[in-house]
């Protein structure tokens, strides 16, 4: 995506206020002189030739960090990547703000997303973990409500990840740092904010992959219709034959 295009301009991450080539990164994606790709985190290094640092496009070896199929645009253009990124940032920021205000006003967040005390019992959570691991999804009335793992996942995305992504994004802007210097204190510097922005974005991608997988598992037609229209057909209590033990 466009963030990976921007990362490719400087594929190092640092902690603190400053960080550039002469300084020590905590994460680095690169290629050796003989075009062997690597990912280095602290002192730990793994070979990533073919995926990160060194990969093939149209039969030619390229040594950018993230490969063409993961970046937007697919050729390397920092300027175009930034244009897409800030367009996306405005859409995310405006839609996110509207959603938050609306969900607080109609109490959707409180009613449906914040877990009840009983749901936070370790036994209840463990049972839900086991159900998910066996892909035994809720049936009947229970399927109409979010289960506790779902609630915790949504809540951490809504009140942790997304705000973190927006605020660390703003901390990378020199104009915003002049306007709101507390951003630098909150994240411990612009380079720390850049690292957190990157980590939070990957956490969000992970959420999206799991979320999509669960939609597919739970019956995509019914689920997507319910997201858009609110109409949800309760899965039968008996379940399909291949799921019965």
């Amino acid at each position: 995506m466009s963030g990976l295009t921007i990362f490719n301009a400087h594929p190092h991450l640092y902690w603190g206020q400053y960080g550039a080539n002469p300084d020590t990164p905590w994460l680095r994606i690169g290629a050796t002189n003989d075009k062997q790709g690597f990912l280095r985190i602290g002192d730990f290094e793994i070979a990533t030739t073919g995926v990160l640092g060194s990969w093939q496009k149209d039969g030619r070896t390229q040594t950018r960090a993230f490969p063409h199929w993961a970046t937007l645009p697919s050729n390397y253009s920092l300027a175009a990547g930034r244009k897409w990124h800030f367009l996306g940032a405005w859409v995310l920021g405006i839609a996110g703000a509207l959603y938050l205000v609306w969900s607080l006003l109609n109490r959707h967040l409180w009613h449906d997303v914040v877990p009840r005390r009983a749901e936070l019992e370790p036994r209840h959570i463990w049972q839900d973990v086991k159900n998910h691991a066996r892909l035994r999804l809720p049936k009947g009335e229970a399927a109409a409500r979010y289960n506790v793992l779902q609630k915790l996942a949504y809540l951490s995305v809504l009140v942790v990840l997304l705000p973190l992504i927006v605020l660390t994004g703003l901390t990378m802007s020199p104009t915003m740092d002049a306007a709101w210097p507390w951003l630098l204190d909150l994240f411990g510097g612009r380079q720390s904010a850049r690292s957190i922005h990157f980590l939070a974005a990957f956490a969000l991608v992970l959420f999206i992959l799991v979320h999509l997988a669960m939609v597919v598992l739970a019956g995509p037609v019914n689920e997507i219709r319910s997201m858009i229209t609110g109409r949800f057909r309760l899965p039968s209590e008996n379940g399909p034959p291949e799921k019965t033990p």
Binding site: L72, L135, A213, L217, V221
Partner: peptide, 26 residues
């Protein structure tokens, strides 16, 4: 309609590639 574990993993792999839309910006 429910989908089992094996189909799920196969489906995830197929969904991971991203087309280019850089021409639009130009």
């Amino acid at each position: 309609m429910m989908i089992g574990r094996r189909k799920l993993i196969a489906g995830l792999g197929a969904g991971l590639t991203l087309g280019g839309c850089q021409k639009i910006l130009e």
